[in-house]
Amino acid sequence: MSVSERLHPGVNLGATDPESHEAAEEVVFGFWIFLMSDLVLFAVLFATYAAMSVQGIAGGPAPAEVFDLTAAFVETLLLLLSSFAFGFAMLAMKYRENARSVLAWLLATGVLGAAFVGMELHDYYVMITAHGAPPQASGFLSAYYLLTGTHALHVSSGLVWMVIMAVQIAVFGLNTAVKLRLMRLALFWHMLDVVWIGIFTFVYLFGVVS
């Protein structure tokens, strides 16, 4: 197989030599595997939630009573837009190798992502104070907080990673190693958005409908 046939998906490197592409392929494939393993973790949490949100209410508040659909909708938009912004950061890296433009788009991504996490924390605050629904209240709420909390933790670590990458762009410029890390961060970020589709559908919308 020639190099060109084996190009990885996701975002590719732009104008660099074929060897880097070959190295990139190994690294990116490895990261895909990590993402899949992470996805299994989420799947297990989803399955647990699916059972406990019905069977584990134990006299506590039910899903429909505590969920704020408007907030979930805004969160969905924030995360979707941040994913989109990251896409443009990667295009700036790939076609123009323009560090400034990459940084600007990363900043947009980061602000949207931070807003997402902030809103989620606010959701938790409202649930705990106004609805008397902390994770200790019932099996359903334990599962809810673990599932959404794991996602929020992923997004937060993505934000930390983003800050580190911004520093690395400033220090090293867009060299191959930095590009490869940005690619992986992009995959990570887009994948978190995919997981969120599951959360807003199976947690929030299902919870309100049923």
């Binding site: 990885h8 998906p9 895909w32 595997i33 995959l187 994948m191 589709i197 599951g198």
Partner: peptide
């Protein structure tokens, strides 16, 4: 939700049916 996952995979994560992406697709 299923359709949206496919949209994200195709448009944001660039997974398609091209030969070069078969390893990832199989995964």
């Amino acid at each position: 939700a299923f359709i949206q996952v496919l949209v994200h995979l195709r448009c944001f994560l660039h997974i398609d049916l091209a030969r070069s992406h078969r390893d990832d697709l199989k995964l």
